[in-house]
Amino acid sequence: MQSSPTTKPLSPRKMGVINGRGLWTLYVKEVRRFMNVFSQTLLAPMVTTLLFLAVFALALGGGGRQVGGVDYILFLGPGLIMMSMVQNAFANTSSSILIAKVQGNIVDLLMPPLSPAELVIGVAGGGVTRGVMVGFVVALGMSIFVPLSIHNAGFILWHAINASLMLALLGLIGGIWAEKFDHIAAVTNFIITPFSFLSGTFYSIERLPENWRFIADFNPFFYMIDGFRYGFIGHADSSLAVGFFLVLIVNIGLGFTAHRMISTGYRLKA
């Protein structure tokens, strides 16, 4: 035993209402997790999205086709950016939680002095960061080929952040619910991908048959793609005000659900 005479007596660390340092540490851990493999998490989505752009522009953009009052490629671009953002925000939080659960190091999140709200904010913050960064990288790559112009930056930011947050929270909830990787793959394949593909990314919602319009009317994915696209091209298929508040309300609801799941320990604590 070696005792050094100069150590101060240990006392519990004082913190206010929010454990700022812990929250920041969690957030940074979430961001570093995906930045470590940025070729997989940032470059790969960009390449895939640009391939989609090429495919759809070649297949469907011929003959100066106009959708929503602009060239098809200008209509398509924002939709594709949004699609890559939501898919990555979801992938980030769901894989983070599920891997932690499978490997057993989820206790490292549950043991520290972090409240459920702080956990939700930290993990979801990482997902939002990934979503927004992917969106930015994709937009940057896309701007080489598509003359993207900004009509209303406020709508772009609002919907980028809210859409990423919505999917980050869904990913958090999905990650808590899932027990195996199959489960999360099923959610991605049968819920997230269909919603992000069929909610007006590639076509104007007017194309839907009359009795399928309800797909759009109650679908937050549709409103956020539409609102995000409005920020670029200045044309929307839906009511902007409804979309603006709907994403906020859905996010608050999802945030409370995630908070509830963590505080009761659903599938997290034995």
């Binding site: 469907l60 199959d182 099923a186 394949n189 269909p194 593909f197 069929l198 590639f202 194309r207």
Partner: peptide, 21 residues
């Protein structure tokens, strides 16, 4: 579920998107 139904579902979505778009 993951290995067959997943690819089958995404292929169907692709066709649907193309027909609608």
């Amino acid at each position: 579920l993951e290995s067959i139904a997943g690819p089958v579902a995404s292929s169907c979505i692709f066709v649907l998107v193309f027909v609608l778009a």
